[in-house]
Simulated scan of single mutants.
Amino acid sequence: MNEKKILIVDGMALLFRAYFAQSYSARRLDDGTPTNAIYGFFQYLFDAVINFQPTHVVCCWDMGSKTFRTDLYSNYKANRPDAPDDLVPQFTLVKDIVAALQIPNIGLEGYEADDCIGTVSHKLSDLGHVYILTGDQDMLQLVTERVHVVIMKKGRSNYAVYDLDFLKTDKGIHPFQVVEMKGLTGDTSDNYPGVRGIGEKTALKLLTEYDSIDGILNNLDILPKSVKIKIESDLEMLHLSRTLARINIEVPIECSLEECLWNVSIEDATIVFDKYRLTSLLKIIS
């Protein structure tokens, strides 16, 4: 069976990971523009292409810090520092090189890359098997029989590939419960609190027994008194946290299978990569 395999790349996740992995590198263009994160980005991308052998590739990006989530909760991600100065000029340049390889760059103001990834994976999973390349465990809510989430681990070509069975084995939950967990526990990385005093262990126990937040709320009266009090004291934030955690799979973007076809011409790529002094990377895919 010649089924299509679609690799959806979490662009920002790869670029930031690459920046910190390559922070020692002094790679720059003649005009002084740094390219260390770009170099690492394409190492990770090409490694994934070799490992997963996709027939199609698309890359999704954040398009600024203001999104519908910051409208809902002004402190959302407010704890995050600004991007390092020498990473900022690489944001645009990496997209230019991605586009030069005929890989679509997808992003929309007001939404996060997560939402674009969720939308594209939902649309294209009927047409092929989707692999989402990321370091963000929030993406685990997108796992289906047709969508696998590839979590990058320390080092190159080191992945945890989550399908439905491995998610249940490794995390003890189903995909929809990723959102329920975040509603209960919050997310320190994204700076929303969930229910104060409810940690992962308690949340997992509650979801194992009652399946969802709605199931927990329907059984409040039989919960341990301390847990009941915590939940009742933070009901509004519980619901808000669950909303913030849920990836939007209905972003108004378009991405056809045809435009995602992985068909890189090494000859054309050499011209682009030589321009940016990245030619050595092409040996990974040639």
Rank of each mutant, 00 (worst) to 15 (best):
L238W: 07
L238H: 03
D96W: 11
Y159N: 08
L278C: 13
Y24I: 07
G199S: 02
G135N: 02
Q102V: 04
G128Q: 05
D115W: 03
V88A: 07
V272N: 04
G197V: 06
G186K: 00
I38R: 00
L238K: 02
I213W: 01
I97Q: 00
Y73W: 09
V227I: 15
P104V: 00
L72W: 11
R69C: 11
T35V: 14
H129W: 05
S189E: 12
N79T: 06
T188I: 06
R17T: 12
E209H: 14
Y44T: 01
Y276P: 00
A18I: 10
N2K: 13
L108Q: 08
P84W: 10
E209I: 07
I173M: 14
W262P: 03
Q102G: 01
M181S: 06
S125L: 03
V49R: 00
Q102E: 15
F68M: 07
I249W: 04
R246I: 02
F16V: 12
S286M: 15
L142N: 00
R277S: 04
L257M: 12
K201Q: 15
K182G: 09
D190Q: 06
L257I: 13
A160T: 05
W262R: 05
T70Y: 08
Y192E: 06
E180V: 06
V251D: 03
P252Y: 09
L72C: 08
D138W: 10
A37D: 06
V178C: 15
I222M: 14
L220T: 03
A83N: 05
T55C: 13
Y192A: 09
R242V: 06
